[in-house]
Nucleic acid binder design. Structure first.
Lengths: 339, 339
DNA sequence: GACTCGACCGGTGGACT
DNA sequence: AAGTCGACCGGTGGACT
């Protein structure tokens, strides 16, 4: 499972493990797809033994856009090898898979950061390989975090403890009388304070070695363990991943951040909701301006401490930079949690 | 310029007027595009003598999705005719053009509705072909409207009279001190009260016969005439056009509606801002739920008259339905304007 | 005329039913 | 297991510089 394409490794794959699935004889109804980019196999192939930022210096410091592009690159190499001129995939296929890979790999980087952070918080000291500067916040098991890559169709409200969900439900019940609602969807990822009942579990301190299928399942299913167990103030960070930007594709995070702020800050008394957007191709400066928008809820209330809805549009240069930045964030934000 | 593909009509086109432009020998830098879908030529070809809703009964009552799909259909027929097996366009090319065509054609339908409405408002009576039921609002030249298809990169605030723009500018100046902003972008289309200085101009009462290139320019440039001349309460309707929906593509209109409501209702004392979304393929019911969201500004203020940010997600069955619905809207909303 | 900038949406791989 | 449902984004034609 090499980061760099290997004809030997490819040859040893069972056909079901290959990155390219030939479905010309088993087409999906109402589609003309001939070859599928098997996203999970691609992740296992390219990142099966590699988590960027926690791998070799060469990968940790490599241009992150190139790192994220590698699975599709490898898959296309494989497809061309087996199918030559017959091989073709729609640009929309690459687009879908590249977007999911950016999200999943970045989540894995942050998962490993959280594991390392948590290990420090329970008093195990600061792991030294690869080297990141040691956070200065005084360790406490209560300051552990969980990194949750949230699935499609998720509703972030389901993370909250029942009492908080009830407050929101009552608020919505009032709206429904007028035919109104305030539906919530989700960021791609949430960082939450690790609930007390998990603070002795080792799994939250274990760095994964790569995105094998079992590890993919571990990370993508982690959110289920925390549903109904998070206090409003414990949603420490929300992240939206967008591999590239277009002016019309900026608004789901911007809107969802506004709703989160209205509900968490306004109705549940939580501190500032930190919501950020990660991208590898901002395509101009317009997005940075769009994301300077003040949080509408705070504005309307005429509060003194108005803030942006989106705290930052971040373009990670390398996986190591992403990790360093996340450690710095935790070092600052987790001070809010009583040690 | 037939609505139905005609090999004779195609044969008579100059190459620059054709719907398919062969650019294999003049490629765009950094692109692999071989054939371009000449969007404006396509509109002139298929709709050069037809505005749906103001054409024959067959077209007015035809499934609007099929009407909107016709230009691409005709262009593909042309391309196949001239280039046979060489002809290919990316699905993203069709997607872009289909989206713009939905926007431009729907704007043209509404333009003609406005022309007919205005003609009634200045006392010329109600035109009878094709037949729509006569609005009941008492006519007044002050109740005329302008339909503005707004361009890419537009800022709806530029429509407002200088005094109102200044109010917004002052508000933003306060935000900028804290590193905040509240940038505005635009709906695809705005319906505004026709300013007094234009109420005798015939052009606002003239129905166009088709989307010839000059008429395309007339409609797409109309907004320039009204910039700086609209009172906050005179933005009667904002529309976003989305040929098809995806769950992630719902939020630009939802967010922009919220911002418009904060600024126009909250800061400038305008009545309820009516913002709607038109689509031909909602793809499930989720979008209808998303658009039940209450306007965040009203919520935060704890106002009594909270309303939805998006008034409706509308799926026009035919062009005649779109026209009828717009007449009904004008009949109701323009009552707010003193006759 | 070459280049940059907006905003268009449909084809996709996987989760869930 | 066949069908439905989420949310991914890159290639595009035109306006502008």
């Amino acid at each position: 499972m090499p980061f760099t394409y290997s004809i030997e490794a490819t040859r040893n794959l069972a056909t079901t493990e290959r990155c390219i699935q030939d479905i010309r004889n088993a087409p999906v109804r109402n589609r003309s797809t001939q070859f599928q980019l098997a996203q999970q196999n691609m992740l296992a192939y390219t990142f099966g033994e590699v988590i960027p930022g926690f791998a070799s210096a060469g990968i940790n410091g490599m241009n992150y856009r190139d790192v994220i592009g590698r699975p599709v690159e490898n898959a296309v190499t494989e497809g061309t090898h087996f199918f030559r001129d017959d091989f073709r995939v729609d640009s929309n296929a690459k687009a879908k898979v590249a977007g999911d890979i950016f999200e999943i790999v970045s989540s894995a980087v942050m998962w490993n950061c959280a594991a390392r952070w948590n290990s420090l918080m329970v008093g195990e000291g600061w792991r030294s390989q690869p080297r990141y500067s040691r956070p200065t916040l005084s360790p406490s098991p209560r300051r552990q975090v969980a990194v949750l890559n949230l699935p499609r169709s998720f509703d972030w409200v389901s993370l909250l403890v029942p009492e908080s969900q009830e407050v929101i439900e009552e608020f919505r019940a009032g709206l429904r009388k007028d035919g109104l609602g305030l539906p919530t969807s989700t960021p791609d990822l949430a960082v939450v304070v690790l609930p007390e009942e998990f603070q002795n579990d080792e799994m939250w301190r274990e760095e994964i070695a790569g995105l094998t299928r079992p590890n993919q399942i571990l990370l993508s299913g982690a959110y289920q363990r925390l549903q109904g167990r998070v206090q409003p103030g414990e949603i420490s960070l929300a992240v939206a991943f967008k591999r590239s930007l277009r002016s019309d594709r900026l608004y789901q995070p911007l809107y969802e951040a506004n709703v989160m702020q209205l509900l968490l800050e306004g109705k549940l008394g939580a501190p500032k909701v930190e919501f950020e957007v990660h991208t590898l191709a901002p395509e101009g400066t317009n997005a940075f301006v769009t994301y300077e928008a003040a949080s509408l809820y705070g504005l309307a209330e005429g509060r003194s401490a108005v803030h942006r809805a989106i705290r930052e549009l971040y373009v990670p240069p390398t996986a190591a930079d992403l990790a360093r930045r996340f450690f710095a964030f935790l070092n600052e934000r987790m001070e809010l949690v009583n040690g």
